[in-house]
Write a protein that binds this DNA or RNA. Sequence first.
DNA 1: GTATCGTATATGTACGTACTAATTGATTTC
DNA 2: GAAATCAATTAGTACGTACATATACGATAC
Lengths: 265, 265
Amino acid sequence: MSNAISEEMTGSTREIKNGWKPEIATAPLYMQVAHHLEARISNGDFAVGSLLPTENELAEALGVSRQTVRQAIGLLRNKGRLSARKGVGTRVEAIEATSGSTRFIAHSRSELFEIAAETEFVIGFREMVSAQGKLAVDLGCRPGRKFLHITGVRYPANRGRAFSWNEVYIDSRVAAAVKDVTVARRAIFHYIEEFTGEKIHEIQQDVRPIAMDEDIAEKVGCKAGDLALIVNRRYYGSGRRLLEYAFQILPADRFTYTTTLRAET
Amino acid sequence: MSNAISEEMTGSTREIKNGWKPEIATAPLYMQVAHHLEARISNGDFAVGSLLPTENELAEALGVSRQTVRQAIGLLRNKGRLSARKGVGTRVEAIEATSGSTRFIAHSRSELFEIAAETEFVIGFREMVSAQGKLAVDLGCRPGRKFLHITGVRYPANRGRAFSWNEVYIDSRVAAAVKDVTVARRAIFHYIEEFTGEKIHEIQQDVRPIAMDEDIAEKVGCKAGDLALIVNRRYYGSGRRLLEYAFQILPADRFTYTTTLRAET
DNA sequence: GTATCGTATATGTACGTACTAATTGATTTC
DNA sequence: GAAATCAATTAGTACGTACATATACGATAC
C-alpha cells in the first residue's frame, strides 16, 4: 500500500521521517517503530526468512536513533517475530502456526489484545451473582461481593468451528462497561479499561487439563470426556484490585500451546 | 554472608566495585548486576514487598551506569521478580508459589536451567534408536537417523514425590555428552552444550493435555486415566539443527502452569 | 479541615558516542 | 585445492546526557 516507507528508494530521509511519524501520537516512539516494522512484515515488505535492514539503516531511514530501533526490535523479538544474530543481522521469523493450531495463550498483554481481535465472543447468558464458597475463593474476595457473570462461546472471526467456552466474572462496579455488548470483538478487559479509564496492570494466567462434561462439550462440538485445557485469568487494576476473573475451556483436539525460548545473549 | 555489598555502608564506591566485579568474568555486566540483585533478594537484603534503592543509587553503589542497572532490572522484571512504577520505584515481588504448585514450564532459557537444577532426572533406561514413522515426524528428520533414547523419572531435588515422566531423544552425534550420566542434576541440553561447546539457540515448547495410560501412571504414582500435561521440547543448535527432542508428562493434580502478564508501559 | 498547587523524586524515553565480539567472505599462504 | 588470515559488517554492550511524566509530599490558600 502507499506506505511512507515505500518512498524509501526515492525520497530523502527527512521525508520518510515526516511521512511516517504521525501514526500513533501518544505511544512512545519505540512502540511506534515496532508497530511500523510489524506492519511492514505482515505487509510482505520484509519477507519471512529474510534479513531486516541493519539497525543503523533503519535508524537513518526512520529518522530515529539506533537505540530506539533496538528497543523496537527487542519488543518484536520477545514476540518471536524477529530473531537477531551478532555479526549477521535480524531475521524475520515465521509466525508459529504448527499444524493448524491457533494461538490462544498470550505471552504479553498486547498479544492478548490481538488474539481477542481475531475472535468473537458471543455472549449467551448474563446474570448478577454474589460470590459465595468456591467462587469467592477463586475470585479471592470476601463472600458477598457482587459480580456480573457472563457466559458464551468464542468463535474465530470468520465464524468457523467454536474456539472455546468462556465464563467471565466482572466486578459490579465496572460491569456497566459491557452493559450493551452482545458480541465482543475485543478483549473484555479492553472494554473495562475504556470504561473506567483505569489500566489493567497485571493479568495472571494459569493452565490446567480437564475432561469436559457433557454440557460444555456439547457447546463447543465435542463429546463428553474429551480432553481440554482450562485457562484461568485474573485481571488486576492499580493496587492489585481484581476487576475481572475469567476462564476459558479449549478443546485439546484443536489447540496446542506453543512457546519458543531463545538464548538471551 | 560476607557479600561485597554489605560493605556498602562503610566502604567507598571504588571498593564496592572492585570487591564485587569478579563474580562471572565472562557474562555481560548487566547480567552480573542482575544476578547480584537476585542474590541479594533471595538473601533477604532486599525484602519482598519493599522498594529497591533507586536506579541512580544502585548505579553509583555498583560503579556502573544507570543504563546498565536498568538492563539488569529489566531482566528481573521479565522474570517477575521486580516490578517498577514511574515516580515511585522498583518493588521486589514475591515469587509465584500458588498453592503448592511447582514451576515446570520455563519462560526463558535461563529459567529452564533453574528448574532443572531443582530436580533430579533419574535415568532408568537407554537405547539407540533409528527414527522411523511417527518418531521421525516428531523429530522432524529423515527416517533412519540415529538417536539415543533415554527414559526416566524426574524427582524434586529433595527426592519427594515423582515430578514427571521424561523421555529424551538425543542426536547420536552428541549423545556421548550424557554417556556416563545416570542421575542428571542439570538440564540435559546443558550437558550437550558443555560437551559440544555449541550453544542451544532456540527451544520450542508445546503443551497438551493427555490422559495417562497405566504404564506411565504407575511410574509417577497415579491411576490410569488420570489427567496430565505433556510438554514437548525441541532443542535447536546453530542453523536450526535439532540436537535434542524431549517430552515430559506432568500429573495434573500436582502442577499448574502459571504466568503473569504485565502492562508494558 | 480541605483543597489546590508547586516541588522533589522516581522511572521512562530518546538521543549520542564508543567500543566489543560474532560472523562472513575475500585474500593470502601453504 | 585447502587452510589460515585479515578486513568489513553487524548486533551487543556500556557509558554518557537530557528531558518527559507519573507519583508523593509538603506548603499554601481558602
